[in-house]
Design a protein around this nucleic acid. Structure first.
Lengths: 141, 141
DNA sequence: TATTTATCCTATAGGTTAACTAGGAAATGC
DNA sequence: GCATTTCCTAGTTAACCTATAGGATAAATA
């Protein structure tokens, strides 16, 4: 299940990307527009900033803004920061690999092999989309 | 992330399917073979039984056994019972659909559309596999 | 019929995480 | 200097996951 954090983060990113040219946008505005708790959104935007997806400005007229075009933000990167590993099991994770303590041998583990395929199928979706793509979907023509 | 319940359930199913012909197999045997807490596995096997994946026999010589060939058990069904919805968001779930309370309109929600694609890609993997397939993977030749 | 074996069932404890909140520090603009 | 807005740390609450306890039920055997 997708965490609220991820969901809110994605919504905030799309909101900001739609206003890419304009002045910084305040947390409160995004929170109101997208029905998100202000304080919670605050922490999410902060981690997005720390991970290089957003810029920010303090004080009056401050807020958050895109730091690079949405078309250059791959969904794989966003998902990994917000949601964590794309794989459903640590032992098939590309970026967060861990061995299973209960499993004697990955090579003969049926779960392992199945989950590799699930991971790859999800990866293909994310790799084929940038933030710009998922905005485009919502604004047909 | 895949729950232990699902992981253990899958391992137990593959174990049982590999001994399809033989007499009922006791919880303890599976627990030992697959490194699973006996009591925990007990509850998992019970739900698998209640959902028509396994049969059981009480008393001496009792245990669990496959009720139909592994080749007739689609992974979609197993995953839904053990792990729950395949979709990452309730609003794109085929079998466990729920509206999002924070989202005014699914049709214009970018998260919604992305998650439909992720769901479909996972579904394709699960639909193309039965329990028999994931056993086959582990026993090369 | 008594005993042993093994599943069935309910309840619950303990730990972890998710979702959200509080309050103030730091920076910016006027 | 004052209002504004992000930055940072910490804490709260509730749900869920993992695992366990203990007895009820049913079957086999002697």
């Amino acid at each position: 299940m997708l965490s609220k954090k991820t969901k809110y983060g994605l919504k905030a990113l799309t909101y900001l990307a739609r206003h890419e040219e304009s002045a910084p946008i305040q947390i409160q505005e995004i929170a109101t527009a997208e029905n998100i708790s202000r304080k919670f959104l605050e922490s999410i935007l902060l981690t997005l900033k720390k991970n290089g997806f957003l810029g920010s400005k303090k004080g009056k007229g401050g807020g958050y803004y895109m730091i690079r075009p949405a078309s250059e933000i791959p969904m794989t990167a966003v998902m990994r920061i917000l949601e964590g590993p794309i794989a459903m099991v640590p032992c098939v994770s590309l970026n967060y690999y861990e061995t299973c303590d209960d499993c004697p041998d990955e090579a003969t583990c049926s779960v392992h092999h199945l989950m590799i395929q699930v991971r790859d199928s999800a990866l293909e979706v994310y790799r084929n989309h940038t933030l710009a793509d998922i905005i485009r979907i919502t604004v047909p023509e």
